[in-house]
């Protein structure tokens, strides 16, 4: 699954999450798996929760405003993280 800056993302309904300190625990009802998101992963997850649909570009812009990171690093690591979330059926892309 290749995602680009223009890809729009939404959280799937078959999950539930809870904030635990600086991290987030997510349960996927469909697969039965449960996960831990680190602090940065939790930040991205909270943005997706607050916005029903969000483009990868918007996500990156918010990260660049809040965190001290180079754009190229941010882009690469955000893409990798989102692809992991898609693989685990926690988020989906929409047309």
């Amino acid at each position: 699954m290749n995602i680009t800056s223009n890809t729009r993302i939404q959280i799937k309904k078959s999950q539930s999450s809870s904030v635990l300190g600086t991290e987030t625990i997510v349960l996927n009802y469909e697969l039965g798996n449960y996960y831990e998101l680190n602090e940065m992963g939790s930040f991205i997850w909270s943005l997706l929760q607050a916005n029903p649909v969000l483009s990868v570009m918007k996500l990156k812009e918010r990260m660049l405003v809040e965190f001290d990171v180079e754009e190229s690093v941010c882009q690469e690591e955000l893409m990798s993280f989102l692809e992991n979330l898609i693989h685990e059926k926690l988020i989906e892309t929409i047309a």
Binding site: G32, N33, Y34, Y35, E36, G41, L85, E88
Partner: peptide, 23 residues
């Protein structure tokens, strides 16, 4: 004539903790 300092960045990570069906 101006900002709050930016927070330290860490790589976003997703870690699989387990599976409730197997449990």
């Amino acid at each position: 004539h101006q900002s709050s300092p930016k927070k330290a960045y860490k790589t976003p990570k997703l870690k699989v903790l387990g599976n409730v069906k197997k449990l």
